[in-house]
């Protein structure tokens, strides 16, 4: 109890401070680190999937583009 506190106020503070989480909680730290790793993994997976999707799309589109370019250039030559 501090100098300015009434006994009721001191009791109130005591009640508010009861049932605190432990001062040291390795499990909480571990859970936080697991969450961090999970988030990193998800981000890396998203980047890998994006790259994969982009290269797959490029592989799909590039033969078509090559064919179109050939056709157009042939048309120009004939003309």
């Amino acid at each position: 109890m501090t100098e300015n506190q009434t006994p009721d106020e001191a009791r109130l503070v005591e009640l508010l401070r009861s049932d605190l989480p432990p001062a040291r909680d390795p499990l909480f730290r571990l859970d936080t680190l697991v969450r961090l790793e999970r988030r990193r993994f998800r981000r890396q997976l998203a980047v890998a999937l994006t790259f994969g999707a982009v290269s797959a799309l490029r592989n799909l589109v590039s033969p078509l583009l090559a064919r179109v370019t050939q056709t157009v250039s042939r048309a120009f030559v004939t003309w």
Binding site: L16, P21, A23, R24, F28, D31, T32
Partner: peptide
């Protein structure tokens, strides 16, 4: 940092939210 401040952050959130698991979730 976690070891040093988890108690303060979690107890603040637990008093705000009442549900201890929600509070710990937000603390993380």
């Amino acid at each position: 940092l976690i070891d040093r401040h988890q108690q303060a952050v979690r107890s603040f959130l637990r008093r705000l939210l009442a549900d201890a698991s929600d509070a710990d979730d937000l603390a993380q």
